[in-house]
Simulated scan of single mutants.
Amino acid sequence: MVPDMFRLTGRVAVVTGAGRGIGAAVAVAFAEAGADVVIAARTGTDLADVAGRVAETGRRAHVVAADLSEPDTAAGLAGTARAEFGRLDIVVNNVGGTYPMPFLDTTPEFLDEAFRFNVGTAHALTRAAVPVMLDGGAGAVVNICSTMSWAAGRGFLGYGTAKAALAHYTRLAAADLAPRIRVNAIAVGSTLTSALQVVAGNPEIRARMENATPLRRLGTPEEIAATALYLASDAGGYVTGKILEVDGGVQAPNLELGLPDL
């Protein structure tokens, strides 16, 4: 039965940035599909709430409250999964991001930090996870990218460059790790998370964003989680090295920061 292909019964996943928003939605969706999860983020209280939601599904969540901006910390999550659950089948590299910055204010140090947080941590965890996944026979990696990995908008140099690197990292890692480990990414459009609420909470700005989106609305974390479930499960078993665009159909950024010409 096709619906059974979306089940994750008996599998174990690591989800970073799982305290809220997309990461939390992914962790809960995976638990609903039958997986146990290692959930990691900076804020323990947020993770405790997500762990409670996982427990309501009948699955287990192991909480790791840590600063995942350090690649070594992210890498340690693979060993945590093995120690707590005896295996690791899925990695979702969701933690990342950086704030907008005008071009002349974007220092080389800022760019380095953006690259490390968005790409370095993802590689560190994926690299550490590969031997554990291979012990179980196979695995799947889902990287959370952005429409800004291909679209050009003022103020997003650091963020967009880092996410573009993560997108191509996805293609390269998929080639390196095939056929036993699949690697895919989701290019996420404007999604109603707490991070976006800073701008989407303004009715005028939200209306402009929605009007610039062909589907005339913003996305939800659950819609991204559903895509992650597809890519992580047997339903996506013939997909690797791909970046799925889940963005309401945008062909250009739907949020302009209004930065002036130099």
Rank of each mutant, 00 (worst) to 15 (best):
F6C: 10
L8Y: 06
V14G: 05
T16G: 14
T16D: 14
T16A: 14
G19D: 09
I22Q: 07
G23I: 09
G23Q: 08
A24D: 02
A24L: 02
V28D: 12
F30L: 14
G34Q: 08
A35V: 11
I39L: 14
A40H: 07
A40K: 08
L47N: 05
D49M: 00
A51M: 08
G52R: 06
R53K: 12
A55N: 05
E56P: 04
R59D: 03
D67T: 01
D67A: 13
E70T: 12
D72L: 09
G76R: 04
G76L: 09
L77Y: 02
A78M: 07
A78F: 06
G79E: 12
R82T: 14
F85S: 11
F85G: 13
G86P: 01
G86E: 02
R87Q: 14
V91I: 04
V95L: 06
G97H: 01
G97L: 05
T98M: 08
T98F: 04
M101C: 15
M101G: 10
P102E: 05
P102Q: 02
F103S: 13
T107N: 01
E109C: 03
F110E: 07
F110M: 12
F110T: 14
D112Y: 01
F115T: 15
F117D: 09
G120M: 09
T126L: 12
T126K: 03
A128G: 09
V130S: 03
V130C: 03
P131Q: 04
V132Y: 02
V132D: 12
M133Y: 10
M133E: 14
L134Y: 01
D135N: 01
G136I: 06
G137A: 05
A138S: 15
G139E: 10
N143P: 14
I144W: 02
C145P: 00
C145K: 00
S146R: 01
T147L: 07
S149M: 11
A151W: 00
A152K: 05
G158P: 09
Y159H: 11
T161N: 04
T161I: 01
K163R: 12
A164P: 02
Y169W: 12
L172M: 10
L172S: 15
L172H: 06
L172D: 05
A173W: 03
L177V: 06
A178W: 00
P179Q: 06
A185D: 14
A185N: 13
A187D: 11
T191L: 09
Q197A: 15
V198S: 12
A200T: 15
A200E: 09
A200F: 12
P203Y: 04
P203M: 07
E204T: 11
E204N: 07
I205K: 05
R208D: 14
M209H: 03
M209C: 07
P214I: 05
L215V: 11
L215N: 04
G219K: 04
G219C: 12
P221W: 03
E222P: 09
I224Y: 04
T227W: 00
L231N: 02
A232C: 13
S233L: 12
D234I: 03
V239R: 00
L244I: 15
E245M: 07
E245H: 09
V246P: 07
V246R: 00
D247G: 11
G248Q: 06
G248M: 05
G248Y: 02
G249E: 10
Q251F: 06
L255Y: 02
L255I: 10
E256G: 15
L257V: 01
L259N: 07
P260R: 00
P260M: 00
